[in-house]
Design a binder for these strands. Structure first.
Length: 201
DNA sequence: TTGGCGATTGGCT
DNA sequence: GCCAATCGCCAAT
C-alpha cells in the first residue's frame, strides 16, 4: 500500500477570499479519520459560493441550518439535498460572514476498501466523483457540520509537496440562480472530476 | 401548518 | 440523455 506523506493545513494558509479559496483547495487533501482507519483523497473539483451570490445558502442570512457557514475560514458546513445526498463545504471569509466552497470530487488516496464498502461500488473513478458520492465514501453527514478542518480530528485538510495541477474554470453545476458565474474550479484532465465532458476542458 | 423546491444520484431508454 | 426518488428547509399561508 502506498504511504502518503502530508501535513495538516494551517488556517493561515487558507485564503480568506471565497473564490481564491476555491482555487486554492484544488490539489489539497481531505482526510477522514474513523475508528476503522484513515480515508483520504485529493481534491480535484470545487465551487465558490461567495458573499452576495444568489445561489449561496447564506444569501438570505443566517438560519439554524446554515449557521456553520458563518464560522471563520476552514470549518465544515454540511447539509443535505434532495433527501439523500450530503454536501461538504469549507467556510471562507472572516467569522460572521456567510460564504464557503463546496468540495465536489476527490481522487481517492487512502482507505479505498472503506470507500468501496461505503459506496457499494468498486469503480475507483466513481467512488468520490460528485459531492454526494464523496460524502458517502468518507462517511460525512450532519454530525460533522461545524468541524474545524484545520485541527486533527474526524475530518481535516492537508497538503503535500505534489506539484500544482493545471486548473480549469467553468460555470457551476446544478444551480439555477447565479448560473452564469464562472465559479467552478477543477483539475484539467482528471478522470475523477464530475459533470459533463463539456465542462472539463 | 403547509407546499414547493433543491449546490444529486442511479437506473432506465 | 431523461427522470423519478426522497426529505429537510423555509417562505408563505
Amino acid at each position: 500500500m502506498v504511504r502518503h506523506n502530508y501535513k495538516l493545513l494551517a488556517r493561515a494558509e487558507l485564503p480568506c477570499d471565497t473564490v481564491a479559496l476555491a482555487c486554492s483547495l484544488i490539489g489539497k487533501i481531505l482526510v477522514r479519520e474513523t475508528t476503522e482507519g484513515i480515508i483520504s483523497g485529493r481534491i480535484v473539483e470545487t465551487e465558490a459560493y461567495p458573499v452576495g451570490d444568489p445561489a449561496s445558502h447564506a444569501y438570505r442570512g443566517m438560519t439554524v441550518r446554515n449557521r456553520s457557514l458563518f464560522l471563520s475560514p476552514g470549518h465544515a458546513y454540511v447539509y443535505m439535498v434532495y433527501g439523500k445526498s450530503y454536501m461538504l463545504n469549507v467556510t471562507s471569509e472572516i467569522a460572521g460572514v456567510g460564504a464557503g466552497v463546496i468540495v465536489r470530487a476527490l481522487e481517492p488516496l487512502e482507505g479505498v476498501p472503506f470507500m468501496e464498502r461505503n459506496r457499494g461500488s468498486q469503480d475507483l473513478r466513481q467512488l468520490a466523483r460528485g459531492p454526494g458520492r464523496l460524502s458517502r465514501a468518507l462517511q460525512i453527514d450532519r454530525r460533522l457540520d461545524g468541524t474545524d478542518l484545520c485541527r486533527n480530528g474526524p475530518l481535516w485538510l492537508a497538503c503535500d509537496d505534489q506539484p500544482p495541477a493545471e486548473i480549469g474554470r467553468s460555470a457551476r453545476i446544478g444551480i439555477s440562480r447565479g448560473a452564469e458565474l464562472m465559479l467552478r474550479f477543477y483539475v484539467r484532465g482528471s478522470r475523477f472530476v464530475s459533470g459533463p465532458s463539456t465542462l472539463k476542458r
